[in-house]
């Protein structure tokens, strides 16, 4: 769902709406002039939002609710019969002692932390460079944003080709480097597959952090740097004491969003490793998918899904907290 998510944080855009009181006053004065229009104001918003609420109810809340229900049943087929299972909490007691489940919890954490760190560091570095004035900056900016515009499946294809152990360009370039004589078989190696998957995730997602940081940098007041320069602070001190603190709120938004996306990531991992080799890249999402479509154990898959849901809710709560403080 990465690409969708790329658009979400849009909410707080635009100028602040006038206070409700002012709005009420205005609509009241309009309604004295036009009684019909005034009555219209009462029901119109509900009519306008009805389509979207109905869509959400039928297509989001019903499936989510069903998922919660199925996780508490003994359904073991992936068919509509799964909706008529008997109530039990066995799936959850089974989870506690399931080694594969705990492995995927660990893998999810490693994958998310790696993706977030990579995206954060590369994004910040790129943003700081792009924030300087140099010739062809516009062109460089566009080039650096390109990975974001590449469809996820295409990104996977290109990287799988580059990772190819025999003919891949990546191993060729690596062996040309001094001091490197390993040519890992990236995707089929238990020790390198996680790195390989994280690299692709970071490559696709860091332009988002770059743009966020770039906007953040432009929001830092210039006179702070001038004052620091007069006080004799060098470039590094200025970066540490002005730039980094100034980017704190942007950084926290980036961290939470990239965490959420990597939590739910399916396409990259599924197409590159299917969670393998030997579970080395099997995140909770992949674990859930394999439970459902390889073992057809619907209720157990949904129990894994509920853990995923709880974690997502927790991260969302953090996000809501950060954004409420800031916005």
């Amino acid at each position: 769902m990465g690409a969708v998510a790329a658009g979400i944080p849009a909410t707080p855009g635009g100028p602040a709406p006038p206070s409700p009181a002012a709005r009420r006053a205005r609509s009241r004065s309009a309604s004295t002039r036009h009684r019909a229009a005034g009555r219209e104001e009462k029901w119109l918003p509900y009519v306008l939002t009805l389509p979207i609420l109905a869509t959400a109810a039928v297509l989001i809340f019903v499936p989510l609710g069903l998922g919660i229900w199925v996780s508490f049943t003994d359904a073991d087929t992936l068919s509509p019969d799964a909706l008529t299972g008997e109530f039990t909490v066995e799936n959850y007691t089974k989870l506690v002692s399931d080694g594969a489940f705990w492995n995927s919890v660990r893998v999810t954490v490693v994958y998310s932390v790696g993706s977030v760190l990579g995206s954060l560091v590369l994004g910040l570095l790129t943003a700081v460079v792009l924030n300087r004035a140099f010739r062809y900056r516009g062109l460089v900016r566009t080039l650096i944003l390109l990975p974001w515009a590449v469809p996820n499946v295409v990104a996977v294809l290109v990287w799988v080709w580059m990772y190819n152990p025999q003919h891949g360009v990546l191993n060729y370039l690596l062996t040309r480097l001094p001091l490197v004589d390993t040519a890992p078989s990236w995707l089929s190696s238990p020790s390198y597959s996680m790195l390989a998957v994280i690299i692709v995730t970071v490559w696709k997602s860091y332009p988002f952090s770059t743009l966020m940081f770039l906007a953040g940098l432009q929001g830092i007041r210039h006179d702070l740097y001038e004052a620091a320069a007069i006080d004799g602070a060098n470039g590094w001190r200025q970066f540490r004491d002005i730039t980094l603190p100034g980017l704190r709120s942007v950084a926290s938004v980036v961290v939470v969003l990239v965490t959420i996306w990597s939590f739910g990531e399916f396409t990259f991992i599924f197409l590159m490793t299917e969670g393998g080799p030997a579970g080395a890249t099997e995140t909770l999402v992949l674990n859930m998918y394999q439970r459902a479509f390889r073992f057809f154990d619907a209720s157990y898959a949904f129990a894994v899904g509920m853990v995923l849901l709880l974690l997502a809710v927790a991260i969302t709560a953090v996000y809501a907290r950060i954004t409420r403080v800031r916005w």
Partner: peptide
């Protein structure tokens, strides 16, 4: 909030429905 949870949590039950 609809954007915050992993797509598979929606896709799998949707498949059953």
């Amino acid at each position: 909030a609809t954007q915050m949870f992993p797509g598979i949590l929606l896709a799998l039950p949707m498949y059953l429905v």
